[in-house]
Design a protein around this nucleic acid. Structure first.
Length: 462
RNA sequence: GGCUGGGUAGCAAAGCGGUUAUGCAGGGGCCUGCAAAGCCUUAUAGACCGGUUCGACUCCGGUCCCAGCCUCCA
């Protein structure tokens, strides 16, 4: 029984799909004017884990994640770079897809682009205008009238009058109420523009998500998610738009992923304290990053530091170490899964609001079990190893073969290493341990670790 | 100020009204020529003050502190 924490109610609730055969999930994706940072990575990875789990539990899941490819920041960046807006956005979309592959993130079912969805936005704005929920200012911009939507603030728990008190007044706008927000914005000269009943312009930020999500998932769907900073105003505004235009409830479950912090402060573009995925990938592989991101619960803050990343790397190594030199059939694996309750407990953990730390702890229990059975009962150890890999795959980790994991990234060739191992073993046979230790130390400086066991000497990367 | 979340051992991170979370790092031991890996074992917790209870890290109240949102942000 899947339980999910719902921002709308601030409670963990049993998840009941609107249509049990087809669950709809929408996640607010990137605004593509720069490379993805670790905060984006966290949202991408978490919803990847979430949708993988849901796909195993429901016949069909439709996962939609949009791309915002038109907005002020994109326009500014394109001017700054003197780069055509489409070449800019395409460049960063490609970069994002590359980052996703590195993090083993599966593609969403639909990845709509705002600029391909302008028609759907028209219809929605039109409908809002007809219902008296939108108006055009003297400057031509079209605004949403939040005072005319009775439930404004229900997601974020905001009180209108209190919001009003601390508002910053935007001098350029023609809003009737300072909390009103733009649905359609008149284009300035040389800005990208689309013709519309209100004049040539472009959509406001919030309308695209209302339009794209309902277009692909229906007016009322199951899950809508994003980073915690989108709760207000973005998601609040989406509710106002969608429920206002469609006269029905919009989303049942709102999910928000916590921030990635640097020194306990939110990683953000405005604070300029962010690390891009590609930067971090210069020092850590994608799987280590992914492990790090799922090592805490998705709603908790996650502190980004070398110490934590190194710890993630070591933890992952322990899991891979358990799988060394073991393989078993699927039959044996299914058999072992029935004998022990690891898989069951693993699924229960994910069913409990996607508790990845608990799920990971079960992986370590299996690893320990393998290590203790390895000599006593190799068959059982092998079957457990297969189970470990299967559950790892559910989380999108343990993707490499054991061989690849332990032998990648070494500058010296296999043959050279073997040669040195032979030389060392000759020295060991002659009990010349100073020579043998010297060879081992030499290899260690090249990140090659030697391990002696009864069948001979094996090597792995450090 | 309003609204959300938090404060757990050296670090990270969970569950739980009474019984080992888990990982990294540390101590002792086994194994090894010595290591590595692994196994066994071990120490270090629950911001503070009250209350409920036979019993609280876990529930309730209060205090202090931290983060986030209230402006674009994942």
């Amino acid at each position: 029984m899947l339980k999910i924490y719902n921002t709308l109610t601030n409670k963990k609730e049993v998840f009941k799909p609107i249509n049990p055969n087809n669950v709809g999930v929408y996640v607010c994706g990137m605004t593509v004017y720069d490379y993805c940072h670790m905060g984006h990575a966290r949202v991408l990875v978490m919803f990847d884990v979430i949708t993988r789990h849901m796909r195993r539990n429901f016949p069909e899941v439709k996962y939609v994640r949009n791309i915002t490819d038109i907005d002020d920041k994109i326009i500014n960046r394109s001017i700054e770079n003197q780069e055509d807006i489409y070449s800019l956005t395409n460049r960063f979309i490609d970069a994002m897809h590359k980052d996703e592959r590195a993090l083993n993130i599966l593609k969403p079912d639909v990845e709509p682009r705002a600029t391909d969805s302008i028609d759907q936005m028209y219809y929605m704005i039109e409908s809002l205008t007809e219902k008296g929920l939108a108006y055009q200012g003297e400057n031509g911009d079209v605004y949403y009238s939040i005072r005319n939507f009775k439930n404004y603030g229900k997601l974020s728990g905001k009180n209108l009058d209190e919001l009003e008190a601390g508002i910053r007044v935007d001098v350029e706008s023609d809003k009737r109420d300072p909390l009103d927000f733009v649905l359609w914005k008149m284009a300035k000269p040389d800005e990208p523009k689309w013709s519309s009943p209100w004049g040539e312009g472009r959509p406001g930020w919030h309308i695209e998500c209302s339009a794209m999500s309902t277009h692909h998932l229906g007016n009322h769907f199951d899950i809508h998610g994003g980073g915690m900073d989108l709760t207000f105003p973005h998601h609040e505004n989406e509710i106002a738009q969608s429920e206002g235009a469609n006269n029905c409830s919009f989303v049942n479950t709102w999910m928000h992923v916590g921030f990635v912090n640097i020194n306990d402060e939110k990683m953000s573009k405005s604070l300029k304290n962010f690390f891009t995925i590609r930067d971090v990938m210069k020092r850590y592989d994608g799987e280590t990053l992914r492990y790090f991101l799922i090592s805490s619960h998705y709603r908790s803050p996650l502190n980004f530091s070398d110490e934590n990343l190194n710890s993630a790397k070591s933890a992952l190594k322990r899991l891979y170490t358990a799988t060394r030199d073991l393989s078993a059939s699927e039959v044996a694996m299914n058999d072992i899964s029935k004998r022990f309750d690891y898989e069951k407990r693993f699924n229960t953990a994910l069913d409990d609001d996607f508790n990845t730390p608990i799920a990971l702890s079960i992986l370590f229990e299996i690893a320990k079990h393998i290590n203790t059975e390895r000599d006593k009962d190799p068959e059982q150890a092998s079957a457990l190893s297969q189970l470990l890999r299967k559950l790892g795959d559910y989380l999108g980790i343990l993707q490499y073969s054991t061989e690849d994991y332990f032998k990648q990234g070494i500058s010296i060739s296999d043959a050279e290493i073997e040669q040195k191992i032979n030389k060392r073993n000759e020295a060991r046979a002659a009990k010349d341990f100073s020579i043998s230790d010297q060879i081992r130390d030499e290899l260690l400086t090249l990140d090659v670790v030697l391990e002696d066991n009864e069948n001979g000497t094996t090597w792995r990367r450090k």
